[in-house]
Design a protein around this nucleic acid. Structure first.
Lengths: 211, 211
DNA sequence: CGGTCGCTCATTGTTGACAATATTGTTGAC
DNA sequence: GTCAACAATATTGTCAACAATGAGCGACCG
């Protein structure tokens, strides 16, 4: 009955989507009810999500959604930057003509979204672009790590997108990445990706200083 | 009674140390006996180690120690390279005078070990050096990821140390890393670290081609 | 009035039994 | 002799009950 494997995915999605905000207690019985499973299964999910860094469990005190401080978010983004450099370089190396067309198309759509002020669509395209780069890069280890890091810092990404002027800045950086990937220039792709995440970092650290 | 938290560490150590070779079945009841714990605890440990990439679990078919192919080991080392670049750069930024002395001392000991052909001691110093760099770098996220990646590829690292001429080559690379860190040159430290792991990669890929 | 002791309750930690599933070994027919 | 169906075993998956722990709260005592 209990889809043992899938409830960890459901719970992860719910945490990332903000259904359970940071700091929320995750009580096993409630999870059992919500996901229609036994307590053992819920426990296993919590153990796994703890080792993914999304949940913190204190002995005999239960589990909570992990709070990510700004300084942690910065570290996470720095690590992401290192790994996405690698992915971008690989994408530049491996991209086929079909891939190149698709990437150009995504950037074109992004341009439209920014022009229209459609933040939600831009955010979706953002995810799509990074996701496609991961697929094109064919680097499973780095891809998995990056996905995990993205999940961990998602609460901060959210705030980021709301900053005024940010979409324009971000758009040009994404365009630069795609240009380099399409040109097959590995070093340029890595540097463009690093520049993009570096700009994310500077926003994060400014915001951190202000609090 | 059951040290719920510690058995995952014990099992991880045993896997990394080769007590359970790659491909070995990890039967829950045997783990219970070995670590004097209940089955639920053993299960939890397996779930966690699966998400760390050390164990693979197939539904209704049990858990085995994950086999890491050479191509996977290459990917793991590539990801490690990206992250250790970051760590080395941070170490160069943060190292105090005391840290610098210690790093120089480790390299001096390494030189002695190589001269004496003491592979075991060299291997220990190798771990010590990378570990100290992680501590000096003060980058928890990257450090955790690197530790995990090291654990995953440990079976291949082992074979690597046995290659003739390898210790000498490796020694000079480590010396270069430490020189850059001691000099406080972030970019040079990152590049030296990348060069070091690049040499590991070339050995791995040569070995992979030969099989 | 303040602090500490002990009680109660919610929640987690652990155990054991049972059901479900895969693997292995065995039998029997062709 | 070979193959398929079937039985036996081994192992995992699930569940429910019980023990243990920590937090909150009120009463008791200084």
């Amino acid at each position: 009955m209990a889809r043992t494997e899938s409830i960890v995915n459901e719970l992860r999605n719910d945490i990332v989507a903000g259904v359970f905000p940071a700091g929320d207690r995750l009580i096993e019985l409630q999870l059992c009810e919500r996901y229609a499973s036994g307590r053992a299964v819920a426990r296993a999910a919590l153990v796994q999500l703890e080792s993914e860094g999304l949940v913190v469990r204190q002995p005999n005190r239960g589990a909570t959604v992990r709070r990510i401080s700004v300084s942690e978010a910065i570290e996470i983004t720095e690590a992401r930057s290192a790994l996405e450099r690698l992915i971008a370089a690989r994408a530049a190396r491996n991209a086929t003509e079909i891939d190149r067309d698709e990437l150009r198309g995504i950037v074109a759509d992004m341009r439209i979204s920014v022009a229209n002020g459609d933040a939600a669509r831009y955010s979706t395209l953002n995810r799509t672009l990074h996701g496609r780069l991961c697929e094109i890069g064919h680097h499973e280890i780095a891809t998995d790590l990056v996905h995990n890091l993205r999940n961990r810092a998602v609460s901060h990404q959210y705030r980021l997108a709301m900053m005024p002027g940010r979409p324009n800045e971000s758009l040009e950086q994404h365009a630069a990445i795609v240009d380099a990937v399409v040109a097959g220039d590995e070093a340029a792709a890595a540097d463009a990706m690093e520049a993009h995440l570096g700009s994310v970092l500077s926003v994060l650290s400014r915001w951190g200083d202000a609090h």
